[in-house]
Design a protein around this nucleic acid. Structure first.
Length: 573
DNA sequence: GCCGTTTTCGGCCCGACTGTTTTCAGTCG
């Protein structure tokens, strides 16, 4: 799918136009279009074929033409011309904290700086401080910013961000001045990766809270320090923003800082049309300035005649329209999960015995867990030979007889070989409760071959679930190429579920694919792929991904009680 | 450049903080 490629072109056009100093609304139009393309579950080429591009939010006549042009020729002439006008290297400058379009333009026009290396050189030679509006301080900030970029700090994955946020929140929570505290920003929206951590606090003594915050042991440097807002960078390089507000503003501030930006803009536009104004302090009548809400987050939505929109949906990808029509999904929640269908034991590369897994799972309230150790092809992960799998089936039977109110399911994570066949015989698969199949090698076969390979596995009548279907590892490995429409159509037809793997680096399927799967009527399983007992806790990340994909309880097979689950996964013979 | 229960033209979200200024532009979220 070319969706992301075109989104990137539009994003870069927006940046280039910004450096040129173009009309900000035109720039916003490009950004908005790009974001909507990123969130689009359908293939842009198909939309173009049907002539329905202009039905996509943010795409009008002009951008539809540019999309068509890209699909046909592989380039957008307008973009190419812009790049001739403005060196592409300038876009890299925008990544430096504190350097925006105006500064980038200034640096280019006055010093002919066209990239990061030149910027660094000029800053070191103190050539920047003579430019209008720049002095030593800016020079220092730019050099620090370049260091930061060079150290290669990218977005963190959600799991990491959450544990860092937990640490900070639990420290601040213990202060007597802190009345309420909540994560905000992309962290609260549970985006798969997070750039910085936003925290909101209610306190009538903001100065004291700020003092503690900027002096936290993990704080490396203070980026900003104001009366109500401060930012630090941790020693590890993560930016943490703290905002302190009065109790009457908490709801409004929470909505404001949770975002996303695009979602907030939509809310404020709606407010304006009603003669209201929304900011982080509340919702006000525009004329009189009278405050009408702000304490509770839900009040903000209610004032705009909307139901509460869960943070995970706030991306301006249709949630506001759905809310207006009363069509918001009733999102799946962690406590609806009744068991885990992808777990490893000591028998392959897991850390615990099967009985330990069972007891831990029962303790967190699960009704069942499927033991899905690797199969023989995965020698490196201690994959089980068929005769060992037979032994394991026996052992699970023995343990099940001991356990009350809990059921271990026999299973495997069977390897999908290069040709789409499985490395365990059908006769043996037939004896298992749950068969999870996955690709672990040959990621570069190409789209057509990989799709065929995947579909062949999906069609196997003993395969219940395809694990980590895209194969991506956040920050490490791109997803392999698949014809998703084809894969999902076959999955539906053959009653094979796709997995949402909750492992923090995977989150695979991702949010967009989850949403696509729902649109195509698939069943999904949320599984942790745990190799140790404490990884059971990552289930909430999987559920969050499902929620971001608009999924409901009925879409998720492991929300079912055991008998219904068994019925659901068994295919007609 | 998009968009329309005020508009096919004229709108298009809002405020904090920094650094450089002397009232504010630029950046950020």
């Amino acid at each position: 799918m070319k969706n992301l490629e075109i989104a990137r072109v539009f994003m870069e056009i927006a940046d280039l136009l910004e450096i040129k100093g173009e009309n900000p609304f035109r720039i916003r139009a490009y950004r908005r279009a790009a974001q909507n393309l990123e969130g689009l579950t359908r293939d842009i080429a198909e939309e173009a074929g049907k002539g329905t591009l202009e039905g996509i939010p943010g795409i009008g006549k002009d951008l539809a033409k540019k999309i068509d042009e890209y699909l046909k020729s592989g380039v957008v002439e307008f973009y190419e011309r812009l790049k001739e006008e403005i060196p592409e290297g300038l876009l890299d400058l925008l990544a430096v904290p504190g350097v925006g379009p105006r500064t980038a333009k200034l640096l280019y026009e006055r010093l002919n700086i066209q990239g990061l290396d030149e910027l660094e050189k000029m800053a070191r030679e103190h050539k920047l401080k003579d430019l209008p509006g720049l002095k030593e301080k800016t020079e220092e900030n730019i050099l620090r910013g370049i260091q930061l970029i060079k150290s290669g700090r990218e977005r963190m994955h959600l799991g990491l961000a959450y544990s860092l946020a937990d640490e900070i929140i639990s420290t601040l929570k213990s202060l007597p001045e802190v009345k309420q505290i909540s994560p905000a920003g992309s962290l609260r929206r549970m985006k798969e990766t997070v750039k910085d951590i936003d925290i909101l606090i209610v306190s009538s003594r903001p100065a004291e809270v700020m003092e503690v915050f900027v002096n936290l042991p993990l704080a490396g440097e203070i980026l900003a320090r104001g009366e109500t807002k401060s930012s630090i960078r941790t020693r590890e390089g993560t930016q943490v923003d703290l905002r302190v507000v009065e109790p009457e503003c908490f709801g409004a501030a929470l909505a404001y800082f949770t975002g996303s930006k695009a979602h907030n803009i939509r809310l404020r536009e709606m407010a304006r049309k009603k003669g209201l104004k929304v900011n982080e302090y509340g919702i006000f009548k525009e004329k009189s300035g009278q405050k009408i809400a702000g304490k509770e987050e839900a009040d903000i939505y209610q004032t705009l005649n909307l139901p509460f929109i869960p943070p995970e949906l706030r991306e301006d990808l249709g949630e506001i329209e759905a809310a207006r029509k009363g069509n918001l999904p009733s999102l799946v929640s962690p406590k609806q999960i009744r068991g885990d269908l992808h777990v490893h034991s000591k028998w392959s590369d897991g850390a615990h015995s099967i009985e330990e897994l069972a007891r831990a799972a029962r303790k967190i309230g699960y009704e069942y867990v499927a033991v899905t150790d690797h199969s023989q092809s995965l020698g490196i992960a201690g994959g089980l030979k068929e005769k060992d799998l037979l032994k394991q089936i026996d052992e699970i039977g023995t343990i099940n007889r001991k356990l009350k109110g809990f059921r271990l399911l026999t299973g495997t994570e069977v390897d999908i070989r290069g040709d789409g066949s499985l490395d365990i015989a059908d006769e043996l698969l037939a004896r298992l409760d749950v068969v999870v199949a996955a690709i672990h090698s040959g990621f570069k076969q190409g789209k057509e071959k990989l799709t065929k390979r995947m579909v062949r596995a999906i069609k196997n009548r003993y395969v219940n679930i395809i694990a980590h279907p895209s194969g991506r590892l956040l920050g490490e490995r791109e997803a392999y190429e698949l014809d998703w429409e084809e894969v999902m159509r076959e999955a539906r037809k053959n009653r094979t579920a796709l997995e949402i793997n909750a492992y923090p680096q995977r989150l695979d399927l991702n949010d967009i694919r989850c949403r696509q799967a729902k649109e195509l009527g698939l069943s999904l399983a949320i599984s942790t792929d745990s190799h140790t007992i404490n990884q059971f806790g990552t289930m909430n990340l999987g559920v969050a991904t499902a929620r971001r994909g608009w999924l409901e309880k009925k879409d998720i097979i492991n929300t079912l009680p055991l008998p219904q689950l068994i019925k659901k996964v068994s295919k007609p013979v």
